[in-house]
Amino acid sequence: MSSKPMVKPVPKPTPETRPFWDGCAVGELRLQHCNSCQHVQYPPRKLCSGCFSQEVEWRVASGRGKVLSWSMVTAPSAPGFHEEVPFLSVMIRLDEGPVMLSVLRNCAGDAVDFDMPVKVIFEQRTEEITIPYFEPA
């Protein structure tokens, strides 16, 4: 299947999100852990959104989670995805707690289910940016 990665949106890392994207580039899903209240958060922030402590530490996450909900997207709503539809938009609760929006690969539309275990996979979009996707675990 042909793809046109140049026309798909490419995240622009900021200082606070750079460690997340650096992790994806080396095949690690990284999450921030608060050393003060133990809250785990996504997306990245300069402070803990649970207690405002600045003692947040990057750790490599399990990369595993469960499906909270999904939709088979048949009409593309963003530029660059016309040849990719249909695809499975998914909301995933990571084992560490935070919820991620992503797309589920390698899964038929009638095979996905609530609480289905999934694991992260990575797809390189540009030389610098790799995007975390998921597939059935």
Partner: peptide, 22 residues
């Protein structure tokens, strides 16, 4: 969200659709 939603090609409708399914 430009970094954590937009790169997946999802739109507003799929968000409402996931809420409907839930």
């Amino acid at each position: 969200n430009p970094q954590f939603e937009l790169p997946y090609g999802v739109g507003l409708t799929s968000g409402y659709a996931m809420a409907a399914r839930a």
